[in-house]
Design a protein around this nucleic acid. Structure first.
Length: 613
RNA sequence: GGGCCCGUAGCUCAGCUGGACAGAGCAGGGGAUUUCUAAUCCCCAGGUCGGAGGUUCGAGUCCUCCCGGGCCCGCCA
């Protein structure tokens, strides 16, 4: 996911180790890279008596070089008027006295650090005793963050692109929650405006069709043919409607009775729009709208639910109008001098704040634009006291960002309060051919179809195998394959294998690795790969924090595949059961730590961690 | 015409806010299993990072231009 503003602007809570805290305290409070950073900073202070620059601590490209490396010598070379390599050498010497490092080496200006066995073992023991809390940090400190995502129009079923937004948004929400943010997941329902009327027309037309009477309402027929929703689902709604009300809606007089019938019919989903229904101009069409909205929202909720995505708030656009918030907003903007009238419409001077041109708030026919209610919506979010709002929009809305940002500036809302990320389209492939999606023609591939065929775990995982602002190809046939082409199974299998070993051990040795404290036996592990596995597992802490601050949840799938791969390799080359007792126990401890990391990471992307497969 | 995004191995994509010889999976070829699940593992191959300049000690990464692909540019939602 790429930020629209710079990463620095976007960062919520940079991890700044408390200056006054001693090393022992930090040792227990911050991720690996930060622990190392603080050691380097201290060494710099002692050596050169200077304020350390903004340097990097990162994994070297080649693992052979070390566990971590820093570029600090390059950055200091100007200030100290010294050759980077010379600085690196001096610093290496200093750092090698630390017992957390096994080796510190200066190579062409880089400083490569290898963590000591003792340090890794002590960290891993901590992981075993703390479980997933080991990876946790209170970065958010309760900061109120709202994540608005999906927000698909309730005029049709969710398609794959919405599913992608749901998965990315939910994963972000889970990450933020894990790191101490107070998260609200919100879905904005566009239940106002013309599209809702068109939904009603479409449902009503299909309803008439069921009685063979569509020809009797030429106005409805024409509108349906020109603008109606042609998808199969509209027919389903019409059928359900007919089931509940019979032929009552064929005459306008039947509308009040029809409403009562729907409410008492025994639908097992909430009928909030139907309950609130009040006839205005075309009661039969409007009742169809209300019932259509109820049924669509139910379907949307179900689809999201089957991917384990749920929202704290389902926010109705209509409610903004009912509360008079749109009018109030326009009044507010007018007072600030940003609103003017031209050609019978009401305009907002967004061009003053970076938009290409001014935008219409109220059309000359007196109705409001979607834009108007959307600003009102964000204004309302601000007034609800969120410290930060993150929106995930479909990529086709990208041109919309400048005008929303401009209007927020007019309302004196801080620039970095709103972050917007774009979710790119998903192309659907079946048998190697693309299945085109078009809502109007009704040929789009609903999310439900993919979920039924492929299953929620694979769908979620696959949606996170690519950065979300680039288009994604979704190949159903591949997704269904239970092969290594499908990385979700590869990762889940690693988890299932560990669980399998634990079951076996319980049975054969009456030893329960879940309950028993096996951490003292880590000492008996002497293979390089075992140390490597520990390091990789521990470094997940750094990865997860990074991913959260960068809002790049797709990277989770990459380190999962990486960790699972190393584990599978290990598993194929080393016996756990059958090795010497103390080694077996050490290996069980190792597996337990790995499993904790796998479980947590899978949980954060909402994928299940099966005990067996 | 303007704006946004993308262009890395035959294919699908990573590349951690400029750093050390450019990575993974798939596809292709060859091997491993009487053992804790073979949905696994091991070995082999492949790229002038779309092109050209520039900034820098250092560029796949930043800047400019060009080429190619996608999306968006409504008093639609």
């Amino acid at each position: 996911m790429r930020a629209l503003t710079s990463r620095r602007e976007n960062s919520i809570a940079p991890i700044t180790p408390p200056v006054e805290a001693g090393w022992e305290v930090k040792y227990n409070l911050i991720p690996m890279k930060e622990i190392v950073r603080s050691r380097i900073e201290q060494a710099l202070g002692e050596l050169y008596k200077i304020d350390p620059p903004e340097f990097k601590v990162e994994k070297p490209k080649d693992e052979e070089l070390g566990d971590l490396a820093t570029n600090v010598a390059f950055l200091l070379s100007k200030a100290l008027r010294k050759n980077p390599n010379e600085i690196a050498k001096e610093l290496s010497e200093k750092l090698s006295q630390e017992d957390m490092f096994e080796a510190v080496e200066a190579v062409r200006g880089f400083i490569n650090l290898r963590l000591s066995r003792n340090f890794i073992l002590s960290e891993f023991r901590r992981l075993l005793s703390e479980g997933e809390d080991y990876f946790k940090e209170d970065i958010g400190r309760g900061l109120k963050v709202q994540l608005e995502f999906v927000s698909a129009n309730p005029t049709g079923p969710l398609h794959l692109g919405h599913g992608r937004g749901a998965v990315v948004g939910d994963a972000l929400a889970r990450l933020f929650e894990f790191y101490g943010f107070n998260i609200t997941r919100e879905y904005y329902i566009n239940d106002a405006g013309r599209q809702v009327y068109i939904l009603g027309v479409s449902v009503f037309y299909r309803y008439l069709e069921l009685f063979g009477k569509e020809g009797e309402r030429p106005g409805i027929k024409k509108l349906f043919e020109e603008e109606g929703y042609k998808g199969e689902y509209v027919i389903e709604i019409a059928k359900a409607l007919k089931g509940a009300v019979g032929d009552l809606l064929l005459s306008r007089d039947g509308v009040p009775e029809a409403k009562e019938r729907i409410l008492s019919y025994g639908f097992d989903f909430p009928l909030s729009y139907t309950s609130a229904f009040k006839p205005v101009r075309e009661p039969e069409v409007e009742l169809c709208s209300a019932f259509g909205l109820d049924m669509m929202m139910e379907e949307i909720r179900e689809d999201l639910g089957s991917m384990c995505v749920d929202f704290d708030v389902w926010f109705s656009e209509r409610s903004l109008y009912e509360r008079g918030l749109v009018d109030k907003l326009i009044e507010e903007l007018r007072e600030r001098g940003y609103v003017y009238e031209a050609e019978g419409a009401l305009w907002l001077k967004t061009s003053q704040f970076g938009d290409d041109k001014d935008r219409v708030l109220r059309k000359s026919d007196g109705t409001y634009t979607y834009f108007a209610s959307d600003i009102a919506y964000h204004w309302d979010k601000f007034k609800r006291g969120f410290d930060k709002v993150i929106d995930l929009w479909g990529a086709d809305h990208h041109g919309y960002i400048p005008r929303v940002k401009a209007s927020l500036k007019m309302l004196r809302i801080p620039e970095d309060w709103l972050e917007v990320y774009l979710i790119q389209m998903v192309k659907f492939f079946r048998e190697g051919k693309e299945v085109k999606m078009s809502k109007r023609a009704g040929t789009f591939v609903p999310l439900r179809e993919a979920l039924n065929e492929v299953g929620p775990d694979a769908v979620r995982f696959l949606f996170l195998t690519k950065r979300s602002d680039t288009p994604l190809d979704f190949d159903v046939d591949k997704a269904k394959e239970k092969s290594s082409d499908n990385p979700v199974f590869y990762v889940q299998y690693a988890h299932a294998r560990i669980s399998g070993v634990f079951r076996e051990v319980k049975e054969r040795f009456n030893l329960d690795p879940e309950k028993e404290d096996l951490s003292p036996f880590l000492e008996s592990l002497e293979e390089d790969i075992e140390l490597k596995l520990m390091k990789k597992t521990l470094m997940i802490k750094d990865e997860l924090i990074d991913i959260t601050l960068r809002r790049d949840p797709h990277l989770i799938t990459y380190f999962l595949i990486d960790l699972a791969g190393l584990f599978h390799h290990y598993y194929n080359h080393h016996r756990i059961i059958g090795s010497e007792k103390r080694i077996m126990k050490g290996r069980l401890a190792l597996l337990k730590g790995i499993r904790t990391a796998l479980r947590l990471s899978l949980k954060l992307i909402g994928v299940s961690a099966p005990e067996r497969m």
